[in-house]
Design a protein around this nucleic acid. Sequence first.
RNA 1: GCGCCUGUAGCUCAACCGGAUAGAGCAACGGCCUUCUAAGCCGUAGGUUGCAGGUUCGAGUCCUGCCAGGCGCGCCA
Length: 582
Amino acid sequence: MKSSIHALLTKALENLVSRGVLESVPAEETIQVERTRDPSHGDFASNCAMMLCKSAGMKPRDLAQQIIDSLPGSHWIQEVSIAGPGFINFRFSSSAWHAEIRRVLEEGVSYGTSHLGKGKQVLVEFVSANPTGPLHVGHGRHAAYGASLANLLEAIGYDVRREYYVNDAGRQMQILAVSLWLRYLELNKVAAALPENAYQGEYIIDIARDLQAEHGDSLVRDPSGLPTVADAEDKETALSDLIAACQKLLGEDTFRIVQDKALDAILSDIKDDLSEFGVVFDRWYSERSLSETGAIDRALEKLQANNHTYIKGGATWFRASDLGDEKDRVVVRDNGQTTYFASDIAYHLEKRERGFDILLDVLGADHHGYIARVRAGLEAMGEPPASLEVKLVQFVSLFRAGKKEQMSTRSGQFVTLRQLREEVGNDAARLIYVMRSNDQHLDFDLELAKSQSSDNPVYYIQYAHARVASVTRQLHEKGYRWDPESGLSSLHALETPHELALMKTVTRYPEMVETAAMNRAPHMLVHYLRDLANDFHTYYNAHQFIVEDQALRDARISLINTARQVIANGLGLLGVSAPDTM
RNA sequence: GCGCCUGUAGCUCAACCGGAUAGAGCAACGGCCUUCUAAGCCGUAGGUUGCAGGUUCGAGUCCUGCCAGGCGCGCCA
């Protein structure tokens, strides 16, 4: 509906250009059309006269009048007027609303989808948590946000792929391997201290048990010669020494067996967890594979070929500061190993090589330092830096009975995503996670999420859906049958304020999907669905749907079914179920 | 010290690239179940949008400077 006004305005402006009133038709995005907040202003408003008055050398209201005079006729438009400083207000005829309501029922599950993003490929990378332990509640927010965002982008026509970058290389994996092996020694009654800065979590013991079942005591070695971490001044360095000593003691192949055991166990747990949460990925991209496939070498060669590197102190540096980063970055250490950053830009280069137009990364707020350097990397490799789009997700604080819970992965003290899901349910978790803007800290209150009350928006929205289903059941019990065609041709019978309001909210859905997707803001959809549910509940309380008059009954049932359809579609994009009974 | 995010009703938050009178929920108070699910609805009350300037027809939104909170600034990943 919005786009039809947009089209009318564009036509009018073209007419004015041909008559010499305006110099040129402005760019598409400068012609803004918005829903009005106040119904007395009509249904839609445009500020284009105010935007263009300066270049036209006219007063805004005079230009607005000229634009109105140049509008092509349309039987959808009932009234056009000038208001305030120069707004052009449009009011749709009831037949226009009825046509849109018909569309909802005809298009069904695909109502709200569009082709805005057609032909563009987007790679949404999200979660990408280190596979060193189970996902916790913070990762859950990334999962819910990324999945909803990907769904939204898909709904407006983008070709979307979802990817999880698996950090299966590097120091954290080595610490994990050592932690597992020490736990395994424990199970084999060999005394060995687990350093406090190793992974302490209970889940490591479970994996150690598996390792023992598979390998018996064949991986046991005498740990007495290993360095201790506990008394060391610098515990991180001491831990590195311990890693090196373990690698030597076990041998590279055996160490790898232990490490891969930990990786496989944890990764498969993460996969199960996410899949149960309704979050699926097209690909789990191994960091390790980047060096194996030569992607890192390709990236480094590109940097060198474009003269963006230099050698200092035996290391290879990338001149990131030339391209907007705050300092230069090491890509190859003096010991010849490439850095995590080298993998990172190689991964992003590889995404571009696969043909993605938009590289959309969902990252934790603590990663904001990456943006400048990865963009610099892309630019240095000859890729457009703007192709990288980063959405930062702020932290989640978990509250139980008004008390904040502390979390730390290494110490093993955290609430896992799985525990959260079991406690509050997938639906409540998915919705509450995306209810707030991504750059807003989220206070996740467990008691609130569990409460089956109006505090809890998920129930409120689902309840609206269930009520429509319930009305349909009642309808059949009373021996009636809903005739959609009769309902749609009787929509003129719906003229109470509640009915008109619901009609307008329902038909706002396609615009909402578009806005939420373009703003990368699933929370806008949540707020919309709450509004819609509110309009429905209000209507439900004010009027009886199952009435004697067949035309009126069919019209009302048709209308509430469009609300049901839109709620189902919207919740679907958010990964939340739309139950028929509650 | 530098950088990113945040600051809106008692609390948790909205406000669609700057739009018309800043909106919801919770909490508080008062009403609505012999009628399709009361997990609901209606009403009342609640604001100098952290502070001070600036930009313009118009600023919660943009710019500058302060104040407060969170996070980040490794040849870690």
